[in-house]
Amino acid sequence: MALSTHTTTSGFLLPSIHSAPPFFTQQPHPTSLSIATDQWIQIILKYARHRRLFTIRVQDAETPGNVWDEILRNERINRKLLPSYLSYIFTQMVSRKVAAYDPPKQDRSILIYWRLPEEWAEVLYEWVSSTANMNTIMTFYEITDPPIESPLSALPIPLLRQAIAILAKSNRAQIIAIAEGEGVRFFPTTIKA
């Protein structure tokens, strides 16, 4: 069987390596393992962006019928990614800072950075500017569940917190305690002459 690309039902284009049976097995040779793991990381990041997914769990490789099936399984060649290999991929993603364990202090679920926290900080700041919310206090809920869908819709709170922390370092945001819990105030940037 020749290796070929494949378009999933969601419209995601899988690379031809996804048709290779050994791709689904953690390879014993370090170079082969490194190449395959790099490919898996790229597929996971691109697929997460394609579907706007923020988390993946080891059990997604164990349980059929979830949103990750399109990439973690290949029924055409009767292969699936083993949970132990997915766990290894998680460690590599976290070490490369394209993911973080979520919740912390466990290794079976990660938060995927298909946009880095620094990129989310800029997206957040641009969105706040475009919605005329500078100098107003917004709840996390107002940001992640706005009345009109935005690039920040359904953004996980841990990722939102990281983006706000990045903006706070440059004096563009400040977390504030409010009656509903926590809010954030955004500040316009000052232009230096």
Results as ranks from 00 to 15, higher is better:
41 I>W: 11
121 A>R: 05
48 A>V: 11
101 Y>T: 03
94 V>T: 12
101 Y>G: 03
54 F>V: 07
116 L>K: 10
119 E>M: 02
113 Y>S: 04
76 R>T: 08
72 L>F: 05
92 Q>N: 10
42 Q>K: 08
32 S>I: 13
83 P>Q: 04
97 K>W: 07
126 E>R: 13
45 L>F: 10
112 I>R: 00
124 L>F: 06
87 S>M: 08
129 S>T: 09
133 N>D: 09
68 W>N: 03
41 I>P: 14
87 S>F: 12
111 L>P: 11
78 N>L: 12
56 I>D: 10
141 Y>M: 11
61 A>C: 07
117 P>G: 02
110 I>E: 05
59 Q>A: 11
54 F>C: 08
118 E>F: 09
116 L>M: 13
53 L>H: 09
55 T>C: 13
60 D>E: 11
43 I>T: 14
73 R>E: 00
63 T>E: 15
35 I>P: 00
30 P>D: 04
49 R>D: 06
59 Q>I: 11
122 E>P: 03
66 N>H: 05
71 I>Y: 10
46 K>A: 14
52 R>E: 15
54 F>W: 15
95 S>A: 14
33 L>D: 09
116 L>N: 08
114 W>P: 02
53 L>T: 02
64 P>K: 13
134 M>L: 15
74 N>G: 01
103 P>N: 05
67 V>Q: 06
39 Q>S: 12
111 L>Y: 14
61 A>T: 03
91 T>A: 04
69 D>Y: 06
51 R>V: 04
32 S>E: 14
89 I>T: 07
46 K>S: 13
68 W>K: 00
126 E>H: 12
113 Y>A: 04
83 P>H: 06
51 R>F: 02
90 F>K: 04
71 I>K: 06
75 E>Q: 14
56 I>A: 03
101 Y>F: 15
47 Y>W: 11
135 N>Q: 13
94 V>R: 05
68 W>T: 02
72 L>C: 04
118 E>M: 05
44 I>D: 08
55 T>E: 14
29 H>Y: 11
38 D>P: 00
29 H>R: 05
74 N>E: 06
138 M>I: 09
37 T>N: 06
